[in-house]
Design a binder for these strands. Sequence first.
DNA 1: CTCAATTTGGTACTTTAGTATGACCCTAAG
DNA 2: CTTAGGGTCATACTAAAGTACCAAATTGAG
Lengths: 138, 138
Amino acid sequence: MKKIIFVFSALSICILALFQISKYSFISSYTSIEFIIALVAVIFLFIGLYLNRKNKNVKKLQSEEIDWKTVKKLGISNREYEVLVEISKGYSNKEIGEHLFVSESTIKTHVSNLLVKLEAKRRTEALRRAKELHIIVG
Amino acid sequence: MKKIIFVFSALSICILALFQISKYSFISSYTSIEFIIALVAVIFLFIGLYLNRKNKNVKKLQSEEIDWKTVKKLGISNREYEVLVEISKGYSNKEIGEHLFVSESTIKTHVSNLLVKLEAKRRTEALRRAKELHIIVG
DNA sequence: CTCAATTTGGTACTTTAGTATGACCCTAAG
DNA sequence: CTTAGGGTCATACTAAAGTACCAAATTGAG
């Protein structure tokens, strides 16, 4: 919202400035008015492009951001979340154990807890749930 | 590319039209020039916004579009692809069999073939590969 | 310190997943 | 007609995943 206010203020200033320029050019010559209008058109075209580019980036980030609030709400611990990420990378329990330097048994415990917390029967279902809840990246 | 040519043509026509308008308003009064400039600014601002919105939609679709060429290149058949999609939804072989009205054995065969074609050891790894290759939606 | 939650790990078990192999039917291409 | 590829299914097997239960060390908040 702050961004919008700032942008509108900037635009207002720009318009006023252009009015001042137009007054001078009005007196000076005929062709320069056309030039000013073309300039205004181009400038505001690029302003429009710039504004929407900002918007796009924000939206893209939103869809790829992780909803940590949901992670906490589900009671998923740090270690459990690490395991979840490893699962999403397609690793087996054994491989995950090697990556995190713990035994396969430990991973199995974490996975079991994750399945309960994500209300899933299988790790693939857990993956889908996690994606729906935006707690892992697509 | 056709779109870009069309848009540039339209913009050229708009600019020429505005030049004509500006000539008349130049003669008529003083305040109308400022109005025309403001109008041009607003119009081109919205044109800029519209153009980028189009762009955004295209980009979004690209990232969510399925690369059927890769599917064919990997030799994945229709039925196998259906199974792949079901896997991505987190279903078990048994459930997939029920959804596609075939036995679990058939699904196992399809999954095995998929794992070979996707160079994966597990269904979760196959999922990751499929996402990387853009042959399923994230 | 005490308590609760986290993290770790084990055993024993059941279930699901995946492999290997063979077989049958169907269809489209040669 | 023959052949290749796709789809179906089964059996027997191994591997991985998941459950249930227990237990110990660690850590952080009150």
